[in-house]
Amino acid sequence: MDEARRKIEETVLASTFPGAFRLTQDAKGAARLEVEVTVPGGGSYGLLITAEPDYPSSMPEVYLVRPLVLRDARGRELLSISPSHEMHLLKPRNRFLRLCHYKPEAWHPSVTFYKVVLKSLLWLTAYENHLQSGRPITDYLGT
């Protein structure tokens, strides 16, 4: 991510998640966004979004880093059933849940971290609904 793009990302996040995010880059340009989000009437969650140096040409990855343990409606740890199409979970990395977000064919460089966070918020909302209904997350978010 170049400097101009980073400024845009920071400006958008500062106006939409004020005080709730931290965006950093390493020497090679790989980015990490840590952000706190809340589901209406529900829990709050910590997301870690990582991006390769060629972001936004490449799609970032989304990890759930807080709470560390999430369970499905049957009480199983989500980590133990990942990857899962029904729950829209990819293969975990470093024991962190990895959430599905944009389809690769829907990704383009004008999608920002902000939109990825919104996509993740939809996942979390679907997850909280799943806890109540037992329905798989795909019922809420599609395939």
Binding site: D54, P56, S57, S58, M59, P104, E105, W107, H108, P109
Partner: peptide, 10 residues
């Protein structure tokens, strides 16, 4: 791949 196409575009 879309990724390489977008990198070339940039």
């Amino acid at each position: 791949t879309a990724r390489s196409r977008f990198n070339v575009n940039a």
